[in-house]
Simulated assay, not measured.
Amino acid sequence: MTTADFKSSLSGMAPAPGISPPLAALWWAAKGDWTKAHEIVQDEEGVDAAWVHAYLHRIEGDLGNAGYWYRRAGKPVASGPVEAEWDRVVSALLEGEQT
């Protein structure tokens, strides 16, 4: 799946079947359902889920919690527009699924 395909899927009612939980969480976040997105990643293991978890707490405004999750993900604390971060995370996760 490409980033363009992923963005196009946002017109649907649910994320594409078979995508990873972190990508599903980003899908729900883009649809404006922070709670559903957070429910998906809060119990997931791994750096991808931690990165998405960090992003979600950043958009929530809980920067202390976001910092914790960025550290767990091994990623620098993001700055700049959250929309750009969403694009960056989606692209990285999709690329990782293709390898």
Rank of each mutant, 00 (worst) to 15 (best):
D87N: 04
G61M: 11
P76A: 14
A4W: 04
L63M: 07
R58M: 05
W34A: 06
R71P: 02
I59K: 07
G46M: 06
W51A: 14
S9L: 15
V89K: 03
A14I: 11
A29C: 12
T99G: 10
I59R: 15
D62S: 02
R72D: 01
D5M: 13
A66C: 04
W34D: 08
V41C: 08
G12E: 15
Y55R: 05
E95T: 10
G80K: 15
R88V: 01
E44T: 10
I40P: 11
D87Y: 01
W28H: 12
R71C: 02
A14T: 15
M1Y: 12
V89W: 01
I40T: 08
E85L: 14
P22F: 09
S91A: 14
E97G: 06
V77M: 04
Y68R: 05
A54P: 05
D33H: 05
D43V: 04
I19G: 14
K75F: 00
E45Q: 09
W51L: 06
P21E: 14
A4T: 14
G74I: 01
D33W: 05
Y68C: 06
S8K: 15
A14Q: 15
L93K: 04
A92E: 12
L93T: 08
E85S: 10
G12S: 10
K31N: 04
S8G: 14
L63H: 13
D33T: 03
G67H: 09
G64M: 04
V89A: 07
W34Y: 12
K75D: 00
K75E: 04
H57I: 05
W69D: 00
M1Q: 05
T35L: 06
A78P: 11
K7F: 05
L26H: 07
G74W: 01
P76L: 07
E97H: 11
L10Q: 07
K7G: 01
K7C: 03
Y70T: 06
L63V: 12
R58C: 09
W27Q: 07
S79D: 13
K75A: 04
Q98R: 13
L94A: 02
V89L: 13
Q42H: 08
A37K: 06
T99K: 08
A84G: 02
T2A: 09
K7D: 12
E83V: 00
E97D: 14
A29Y: 08
L63D: 12
T3E: 07
G18V: 12
G96L: 11
P81K: 13
V52P: 04
D43F: 00
G67K: 12
S20G: 08
D62A: 02
